[in-house]
Structure formats: structure tokens, C-alpha cells
Design a protein around this nucleic acid. Structure first.
Lengths: 119, 119
DNA sequence: TTCAATACTTACCTTGAGGTAAGTATTGAA
DNA sequence: TTCAATACTTACCTCAAGGTAAGTATTGAA
């Protein structure tokens, strides 16, 4: 497995949480799954413009391993796999709430301060 | 400047917050400054075992630029520089609270599940 | 037998975050 | 004049995260 050794000894709670949420697309995957409840691989891919299949599957696998995401395979043709959040995934998303609000306020502040880029 | 182009257009609040907090030592710097109120460069360095001077100063500069950290220079010999959190830095730290608690719970859960590594 | 549709998988490459270690700047004291 | 003490600064290197693009697996329908 490429995405190996994690769950290291953590120096604080933030550290432990970051270990699980750091990764370019993870917080967005979390949001998509929380928002839609259940999403297929292809739906997630379309919902995250710019993500590569490699990174999407890699992040999903890590999140599954970390107990955040549930993976349900339907033995059909064509193949169908549904992803959803576990209880841990949902609680993580909740814990990210205040951070998201802070970021929202920051973005608004930046937009207000923004010097108009006039050529 | 090496640590350039940030403040990109964000796709959500988490994204905006992560832009500011991602960096190996940033959440720890945040914690140290929140905990002590004011810290000198050398004190921070000693408080973050393993950090390199290059990364410490780079992170501090970025956080100053992002309005999280205040830098106060005392024209003395030997030189003395004190770092502290701004209001934004303090509110970010608050917003990180729930995430830290989540991580704490996760760490406890992992410790409970941990298979004893017996040689 | 070939194709369609979906979900991966693999090999290879690029980029940037972060580390290492040595050097610079400042100036009062000895 | 040299040194001590602190806060950087710079050049160079390593490694892993992430991107690209092509290939594989599955199986019912035509």
C-alpha cells in the first residue's frame, strides 16, 4: 500500500485530526458525502472538478481505513459502488463546522479588502 | 518571496481556513502563542522540538502576512523579537477547538483499539 | 464475439514542502 | 578589536503528495 504508516503518535488533538483530514480533496469529499448522504465513485468525481481518479480513490481508501467512510459494493453490471459517511465521518464534519465558518468570514474579509486588480 | 501566491479563490470556508493553517507547525505555533500570550523566536523554537529555523521563520512570516500573528521588534542587543496572536489568530484558535477535541477522542479510540505490539 | 459502462489500477513524472547546515547582521561589553 | 547572544538568511537537497495517461476487470446486451 502506498498510503502507509499513519495513526502516528500524536502530539495533540489537532495533530490527530489533521492526520485524517489533510489531503487535497478530503474535506471536500467529506462535504459531498455529508451533503448527498450517498455518492457513487463517478458522482464524486464529477462533483470535485479537477480531482484525478488516482487521488480520489486513494483518499477514499484512506478515509475508509480511518473509519470515516463506508464503501458499499453492488455486484451489478456495470459496476456500482456507493460511498457514505460513517458516524465518525459525520462527527468530524461537525467538528469542522466552526473552522469552515471562520474561513468563510476570512474569505469575506479578504473580498472586502481586495485591491481591485486594474491593468 | 518563496511562500507566495496564497489567498487564492476559495471553493469553501474549510478551504479558506486550511490555506492559512496548513503547514507542518502552524497549529502548534498557534497553540504556543495562545497558551503563552507572547513568545520570543528562541522560545518558540525550543517549544517546538524538531522545527527548523527556516520553517519556523517562514511559517511566522506567512501567519503575520495572513493577519494571525503580530511581530514586535525591540531594538536591543542582543536582538529581541516577540510574537503574539492577533484577534484573528485567537478566533482561529477557537474555531479549531472542536476539531482538536475530535482528534483527542480519535486518539483515545485508537489507543483503546491498539493491538499491543509485543515482540 | 464485441461493446458499453463503471470502477478502479499502474507506471511514470513534476512540484513544492520541508530539512540541513553554514553564513549574516547588530551592537554593547570586555 | 574581538566576542557573545539572538534572530534571521541562503543555498542546496530530499522525499512524498499529487498529476497524467494508459491499461485492467466485470458481465449483460446486441
Amino acid at each position: 500500500m502506498t498510503s502507509s504508516e499513519r495513526r502516528g503518535p500524536y502530539i495533540c488533538g489537532i495533530d490527530a485530526a489533521m492526520d485524517v483530514v489533510s489531503g487535497k480533496w478530503k474535506s471536500l469529499i467529506l462535504w459531498e458525502l455529508d451533503n448527498y448522504g450517498t455518492r457513487r465513485f463517478g458522482e464524486l468525481k464529477r462533483g470535485l472538478p479537477g480531482v484525478s481518479e488516482k487521488m480520489l480513490i486513494q483518499h477514499l481508501r484512506e478515509m475508509e481505513q480511518d473509519g470515516l467512510v463506508h464503501r458499499e459494493v453492488y455486484r451489478e453490471v456495470p459496476p456500482k459502488v456507493e460511498y457514505s459517511l460513517t458516524e465518525h465521518g459525520r462527527s468530524l464534519n461537525e467538528a469542522l463546522g466552526p473552522l469552515g465558518e471562520w474561513g468563510q468570514r476570512r474569505a469575506e474579509r479578504l473580498a472586502a479588502e481586495a485591491p481591485t486588480v486594474s491593468p
